[in-house]
Design a protein around this nucleic acid. Sequence first.
DNA 1: AGATTTGTCTAGCGGTCGCTACACAAAAAC
DNA 2: GTTTTTGTGTAGCGACCGCTAGACAAATCT
Lengths: 209, 209
Amino acid sequence: MVTGQETQAQGGAGRTRGRPRSFDRATALEKALMAFWEHGYEATSVSDLTRIMGIGAPSLYAAFGDKRTLFDEVVRVYAGTHGAFGERALAEEPTAREGIARMLREAAAEYTDPAHPYGCLIVHAATNCTSADVEALLRERRNANIAALESRIRADIAAGVLPAGTDAAALARHAGAMIQGMSQQARDGARREELEALAEIAMAIWPHD
Amino acid sequence: MVTGQETQAQGGAGRTRGRPRSFDRATALEKALMAFWEHGYEATSVSDLTRIMGIGAPSLYAAFGDKRTLFDEVVRVYAGTHGAFGERALAEEPTAREGIARMLREAAAEYTDPAHPYGCLIVHAATNCTSADVEALLRERRNANIAALESRIRADIAAGVLPAGTDAAALARHAGAMIQGMSQQARDGARREELEALAEIAMAIWPHD
DNA sequence: AGATTTGTCTAGCGGTCGCTACACAAAAAC
DNA sequence: GTTTTTGTGTAGCGACCGCTAGACAAATCT
């Protein structure tokens, strides 16, 4: 059940006709990712993109569709790479509590990593957006992430790992607020150790024996 | 040592010459505040402003300077009115803990109040901004707010109200992250009761006896 | 080789941006 | 009244926005 489009990597035998592309699509996409991550959707103009990606506007439109479609792809790539640590932590740790503790710890490191823009693309790249549906695109991802946290917590309550009276929704919202607040503070210049201290004390709201 | 410009309110005796202004400056300013609050600095165009304020562009420029100067004034007004609940709570409550608890409770109500745009203008109105100094304007306010929280907490530690080992910086950052996260979630559609539950459990990280 | 397919380049479209020159209107000063 | 001062309306400036037509370049197919 593969999509069939398969990123048109040139791995698919010699299905090349016509003039070959003069740039590496994945590399250019990564450059666009960094630009959108740093400046957001609207503040990144197409001429910014073409300069950073090192290609002309017609090449960009031929390879990625329009600006909006490119952004969709960037968001998908981001969610699967730099933004995947949360989902991974939740899947790999044995309890919701340990998963969320690890997610917050990793967020502190990730959001302040000088190797790329600070903070989280999904939190910041489409605030104050003229296009309502671009804003909705990221909003839905944020709300879906909080919902995923909540259902993971509920699973632990059902399994007896967490006390029956635990407020799953509030705990999930708190973790979400921590992520969003840490992302904002990373953008505002907070250092990694500061966010790590924050992530650590934040776990004190969880029910303890 | 008054500035001399004194907001040119017509209270200052009959110092009117020339044609009088055809609109109420404070009302127009409030309209601009709402527009910037809802859509942010860059996504609010001058033609948006003139339409909403009900005046022509030359009138806007004569009364408020340019778009940037108008935004500065809007931020100042916001900080003194809708955005003043935090400072007020901190000043009026006897302890840092009670002040911050009240601040978070009031934020839940304020950020979801349907009488005006959701969330906090200072958190959201200048993210992804082409103009670096507009972004810095609000960033400095956010960081100053966190610093104010921290020094209030330190005062309670010095006074023996809080235990000596208390991590003031982390507690302040946590409160700041809660404010920023609640603002984001209000914009993302969270209801008042949800944010109130969040504000309540968030106080559990404070040292307790 | 020619024909076909596809990518790249130059140049520029219509639209919006923040902002302002200029003529006119409405008040006080004389 | 006339002059001076200040606000308002029209109309449009130069710059940038996202995007694309059309000519040319570089590959495969026959």
